[in-house]
Amino acid sequence: MALGIIENLIQRLTSLPGIGRKTAQRLAFYILAMPDGEAKSIAEAINDVKDKARFCSVCFNITESDTCSICSDMERDRKKICVVEEPSNILVIERTGFKGIYHVLLGALSPIDRITPEKLKIEELLSRIRTDSAEEVIIATNPNTKGEMTAQYLKEALAPLGITVSRIAYGLPMGSDIEFADEVTLKKSFEGRRNI
């Protein structure tokens, strides 16, 4: 019977991304050996996320209330909207000291995966810009094909609104070596060079 419970936990854990049977087995036995309180707090944290987490009604960031802490913060620069693919991108950009507000698309365009503009929060972005006083949209989608396609689509969709649309810079990562860069990355960094 006890093995049935363990087996059930192993099966549940394997449904998580990147966790195979062996890892799930290791995690299950680790959870079994954990102090009661610690193990239960994990279960409670999962319950809390599922019960309370929702998308912000303004920017589609993850929040516990109707609007997220960034959208409710009146100190932030509301003239700059940074557009990202996923809520997790906001955490990274926040570390840069960016003080504007965000808009999460909840994905990126991908014809091969049948992800069309209607499946993203693009219309919500447009209506938000029409009603708010935003002056600049910074497109911070990933520098890959899907992110690029999304940025191009946004550029065209935002053009009639007459606001500044910018794209985060491309190029070589800090601390890397030119010798190991591929030609597409290097070409992009040459195209995006600036005076110093």
């Binding site: 094909t145 690029e148 396609m149 591929d182």
Partner: peptide, 21 residues
């Protein structure tokens, strides 16, 4: 190691959609 990047196919939505097809 890249031989031909076909980068231009990824710079235009219509061309990218056709290549995706």
């Amino acid at each position: 190691d890249i031989i031909e990047p076909f980068q231009e196919l990824r710079e235009d939505i219509a061309t990218f959609t056709a290549a995706s097809e």
